[in-house]
C-alpha cells in the first residue's frame, strides 16, 4: 500500500530536486538572454517593478547632496559664480561666431547642392546609477521609452561623446559607455583627418584604436573626434586624446591607447541625441538601408564573440 506522510509533515519536493529545477531555470534564462535576446520582454516588465526601488535608492543620496550644497560657503559660491559668468561670456562669444559660421556654411552647402544637416534634437537625462556589474561599463539614466528614447541613440555630455543607449525600458534606459569592451565608435584624427575605429578598453577605462598600420600617421596628443560615418554619432564630437602609441616591428598593427574626452564619473547629467543624426552627405545612397535595420544588424554583430582578435 502506498504510504504517504500526513499533510502536517509534507514539505514539497526534496531540496536537491528544487535546486536542480531553479539551476536549470537560471541557465535557460541566461542562454536565452545571451544568445537569442528572447528575454527582453521579461526584462522590460521586471524593470518597471525595479524602477521605483532604484528611484527610492537615489533619494537619500540626492538629499545629502542638496543639504551639502545648502551649506556650501558663500565665498565659494561667489567664486564659482564669477567663473561661470566668465565662461558664459566666452561661450556666448563663441556661439555668436558659430552662428555666423553656420549661416555661411549653410550658404556654401546650398551652393554646392549638398544636403543641409538637420539640427539634432536632444533629451537631458540624469544618471541614476552605475551598474554594479564589474564586467561591463554601463550606466542607467532616468529617461526611457516614455520620453521618446530609442535604442542606438548616441549619448553625449558637455565634454564629448559618452556612449550609446543599448536598452530602453519604460522610464529608464541603459547606456553602454565608450570604454565598454564591446563598444566601438568611428573616429577621425583632427590633425590630419585620418579615420579609425576606437574600441573600449574594458577595465582599464581607456579606448584603443585597433587595426591601425604600424606606420600610421598618428602621435601622442592627437585629438580624436567622431567621423559620423556610422550614421549614429553626429560628426565632430570630441571622443578621446591619444596618450600612447607603441610601434613594434614584429606586429602588423600599432598599439594605440587613448584617454576618453568625457569622463562620466564626474558629471551627473548627459544628453541623449534624438534620431536627427544622419549619414554624411553622399553615404545615404551607398548604405541604402533603413536606420533601424542598420541598428539591429550592428547589435547582432556586437553580440558575436570577438572572432577578429
Amino acid at each position: 500500500m502506498e504510504h504517504s506522510p500526513p499533510p502536517f509533515f509534507r514539505r514539497g519536493p526534496a531540496p536537491v530536486v528544487r535546486l536542480a529545477f531553479f539551476v536549470s531555470l537560471s541557465l535557460a534564462l541566461a542562454v536565452l538572454d545571451a544568445r537569442f535576446r528572447y528575454a527582453d520582454g521579461l526584462r522590460g516588465a521586471l524593470a518597471l517593478f525595479v524602477y521605483p526601488l532604484q528611484l527610492a535608492a537615489t533619494v537619500p543620496v540626492e538629499l545629502a547632496a542638496r543639504v551639502a550644497e545648502h551649506f556650501a560657503d558663500q565665498a565659494r559660491l561667489r567664486e564659482e559664480n564669477a567663473a561661470l559668468r566668465a565662461r558664459l561670456l566666452e561661450a556666448s562669444r563663441a556661439a555668436s561666431q558659430a552662428e555666423s559660421e553656420r549661416a555661411e556654411l549653410a550658404e556654401l552647402r546650398r551652393l554646392a547642392g549638398a544636403a543641409e544637416r538637420l539640427a539634432v534634437e536632444a533629451t537631458l537625462a540624469e544618471i541614476l546609477h552605475h551598474g554594479r556589474d564589474p564586467f561591463a561599463r554601463k550606466v542607467v539614466i532616468g529617461r526611457g521609452a516614455r520620453h521618446g528614447l530609442k535604442p542606438g541613440s548616441p549619448v553625449v555630455n558637455e565634454a564629448g561623446a559618452v556612449g550609446q543607449v543599448t536598452r530602453v525600458y519604460a522610464f529608464a534606459s541603459e547606456v553602454t559607455l565608450l570604454t565598454d569592451k564591446d563598444q566601438a565608435i568611428p573616429v577621425q584624427v583632427v590633425r590630419n583627418g585620418l579615420r579609425a575605429v576606437a574600441f573600449g578598453g574594458g577595465a582599464s577605462g581607456m579606448l584603443e584604436l585597433r587595426f591601425m598600420a604600424a606606420n600610421a600617421e598618428i602621435q601622442a596628443g592627437d585629438r580624436l573626434v567622431t567621423s559620423g560615418l556610422d550614421g549614429v554619432y553626429p560628426p565632430g564630437l570630441p571622443v578621446a586624446t591619444v596618450v600612447r602609441v607603441e610601434r613594434d616591428a614584429s606586429y602588423t598593427f600599432a598599439r594605440i591607447l587613448c584617454e576618453p574626452a568625457a569622463p562620466v564619473d564626474a558629471g551627473r547629467y548627459v544628453l541623449v541625441l534624438g534620431g536627427g543624426a544622419r549619414l554624411a552627405p553622399g553615404l545615404e545612397e551607398i548604405a541604402g538601408e533603413e536606420p533601424e535595420r542598420r541598428a539591429t544588424k550592428k547589435k547582432s554583430r556586437r553580440r558575436e564573440p570577438d572572432a577578429a582578435r
Binding site: V23, S26, L29, V31, D33, R43, R132
Partner: peptide
C-alpha cells in the same frame, strides 16, 4: 528558500542590467 532566492536574483539581474539568470543561479545555490 530557493523560490524567493531565485526571484530576487532575477530582480537584481534586471536592476543592474547584467546577464539575466546570473544572480538567479548564484542566489539559488
Amino acid at each position: 528558500g530557493l523560490g524567493i532566492a531565485w526571484a530576487l536574483g532575477v530582480v537584481v539581474d534586471v536592476g543592474n542590467g547584467v546577464l539575466l539568470g546570473q544572480h538567479a543561479l548564484a542566489y539559488s545555490l
